[in-house]
Design a protein around this nucleic acid. Structure first.
Length: 192
DNA sequence: TATTGGATCGCC
DNA sequence: GCGATCCAATAG
């Protein structure tokens, strides 16, 4: 069984979406090549009252896609150098998203090695900036429809074992929230 | 208008 | 532990 996640999947509680994305496959078509990887680590950023969220202080030019319909990509540049990929969740008007933090590479591994300048499999996509570089994701995908050919998520019905829930990485404000999720057995998580 | 602090990463 | 380097929130 192999089905592409539809918009209704994203139009739900962000914590549910963040957990259920684990074990599913992110697919990106770029320059005629298909790249894919299993999602093994995610983080949730939810609503106006989450101090760690970009949407915390209201809508800006950068974060406006978070306020729109679910099932679209929110891509931003962080620390001036790296991109981060998020999936917008919940109803129109409520700002929330899931940050994709790590993948287990599947298709397009040679391209990923070139872009990441390393041969080490575990280093290709074990972090939000790393996976965007490996997959060729940049702001050209800002606002991209996750139910389109360019980028989507596939459910292959794989079982994933234990999910670990911890505090989010790199956030000071809102650090007490345990909104980071990863597959316990995966060797491709950004840090344990 | 200037300063500061990030949802990061790789090298020192 | 620090520098690279952009964005946007804050202070002035």
């Amino acid at each position: 069984m192999r089905k592409i996640l539809q918009r209704k999947f994203y139009n739900r509680s962000t914590l549910k979406v963040a957990k259920e994305l684990l074990g599913k496959y992110l697919v990106v078509h770029k320059n005629g090549e298909k790249l894919s990887g299993k999602i093994v680590e995610t983080e949730a950023y939810i609503g106006l009252n989450d101090p760690a969220s970009h949407a915390h202080r209201g809508m800006t030019e950068r974060n406006k896609v978070m306020f729109g319909n679910p099932g679209y990509a929110y891509v931003y540049l962080t620390y001036g150098m790296y991109h981060c990929l998020n999936f917008v969740t919940e109803r129109n008007g409520y700002p929330a998203a899931v940050l994709i933090r790590a993948l287990e590479p599947e298709q397009g591994i040679e391209t990923m090695k070139q872009r990441r300048k390393t041969e080490i499999m575990e280093e290709l996509t074990n972090g939000p900036g790393k996976l965007c570089l490996a997959m060729g994701i940049d702001r050209a995908l800002y606002g991209a429809d996750l139910c389109s050919e360019a980028i989507y998520v596939e459910d292959r019905g794989e079982s994933i074992g234990k999910i670990v829930s911890t505090n989010r990485i790199g956030v000071e404000k809102g650090k007490e929230k345990k909104w980071r999720f990863y597959i316990k057995e995966s060797g491709f998580v950004s840090r344990k």
